[in-house]
Computed example of a mutant assay.
Amino acid sequence: MKNEFLTIRFMKLKSLFLLLLLSNIAFAQLKTENYKIYNTQSKSICSLEDMIKSLVLADVVFFGEEHNDPTGHQLESDVLQKLHQLNGKKQTLSMEMFEKDIQQVMNEYLQNLIREKNFIKEARAWNNYNDYKPMIEYAREKELAVIAANPPNRYVNLVTRKGLSALNPLDRSAKKWLPPLPIDTATGAYYKNFLKTMGGHTVPGMEIYQSQNLWDSGMAHSIFQYLKKNKGDKVFHILGRFHSDEKLGTMAKLLKYNAGLKLSNISSFSDKSFNEPDWSKFSHLGDFVIITNPDLKRTF
């Protein structure tokens, strides 16, 4: 019986090792011909290394992604690792993909106290968690902090249904997961972009747009709180690119909390013009624009 148990355990460990090996091989297949980086300040194509030289000067770097772009996900992990090599223990990872009320679960996993399957379940990980797993595992290996930045979805949904005023009756224990109320709803360019994303139609009652502003304010306040407690640290924040394109959304909210922060942003997405992009159409989106091969983009 004992030998049988040891054999089964060995086979499980062997399978796990092979899975990790295959995962690492797949992750290593990032090819430079599948992405192009454009420096909007110098108006020129640049290398990943040149981009890092600029990003390392920022207090907070925003990587605006498309959630179903595997090349973008691989680049995120590369950028995190390269920033960490330069910033050391001061480097922190922050993610839209995890909600603020699971921060303890995140910390327990990073400290190797709980199993991955418990982490995935209790942290309410996204269905495409494997896209973000390399960054989480890197942070765990290198003992880097990870900020679960998003306000809890139940409150975002509440605002979507009933508007921002629906947050007012929540008690103090609930509001600790939220940014300070009331929340300013950005207008102007950000609202126009939101309407464009919604198909160009006016949003009845504005509740959906208000929930978008809660989302942005929540992520911004999570980063602000962390940096207030950990002065001198650097944050690499992963989020959907709508939240940071044109330095609006979350970026604008963060500067309202601390106008002295130096911020940089990347807008990364696949585009059918990949072979011959007209960069003038994209240069307003961020400090760096990354276009990836659209043939590799997934559908959920």
Rank of each mutant, 00 (worst) to 15 (best):
G188D: 09
D50Y: 03
Q210M: 09
T250Q: 07
T40N: 03
F288L: 04
Y209Q: 07
K53T: 11
F288P: 05
S264I: 07
L75A: 13
D69R: 00
N168A: 12
D59Q: 12
D233Q: 12
K192S: 07
V146N: 03
M95H: 07
R298P: 06
F274S: 01
T7I: 10
L195D: 03
K297F: 00
N230G: 07
L263W: 00
L261I: 06
D69S: 12
C46K: 11
P204C: 10
V60H: 03
H284V: 07
I208N: 12
I52K: 03
E122P: 05
K53M: 12
R124S: 13
Q29H: 06
L214K: 07
L296R: 05
Q91Y: 01
I136F: 15
V60D: 05
L158I: 02
Q104V: 15
K31Q: 11
V105H: 06
T197H: 13
K2S: 09
A220Y: 09
L30V: 08
K196N: 01
D271W: 00
V79D: 02
S42G: 06
H237N: 07
L110A: 01
N168F: 05
H201N: 12
K117H: 11
M95V: 14
M251L: 10
F282T: 00
L170C: 00
S15C: 02
I25E: 06
L83Y: 02
K12N: 08
L167F: 06
Y132G: 03
N130K: 11
H237V: 08
T185D: 04
L181T: 11
W279M: 04
L83C: 11
K253R: 15
K53E: 15
F269N: 00
K14F: 15
K36H: 01
L164T: 06
L48S: 00
Y209S: 10
A166S: 15
M251W: 02
L261D: 12
E207S: 09
A148V: 14
G286I: 01
K176R: 13
N265L: 01
A259G: 01
K133W: 01
S23D: 10
V61Y: 11
M219H: 09
P134F: 11
L16C: 04
P277M: 01
G200Q: 12
P180N: 04
V159F: 13
Q111C: 03
G64N: 04
I266D: 00
A259N: 15
M251P: 03
L170T: 06
F242V: 01
D50G: 01
G200S: 10
N118K: 13
E33Y: 02
P179E: 04
D69Q: 10
M51C: 03
D295K: 14
Q81N: 12
F300D: 12
L167N: 05
N213R: 14
S267T: 14
L93D: 05
N150D: 11
P179T: 07
E108P: 09
L158Q: 10
N87E: 11
T71H: 01
L22N: 07
L254W: 08
S77I: 12
L261G: 02
E66P: 00
I25Q: 09
N153P: 06
D233M: 06
D101M: 04
I291F: 02
N24D: 10
L239W: 07
R124M: 11
L19M: 06
K12G: 05
F5M: 13
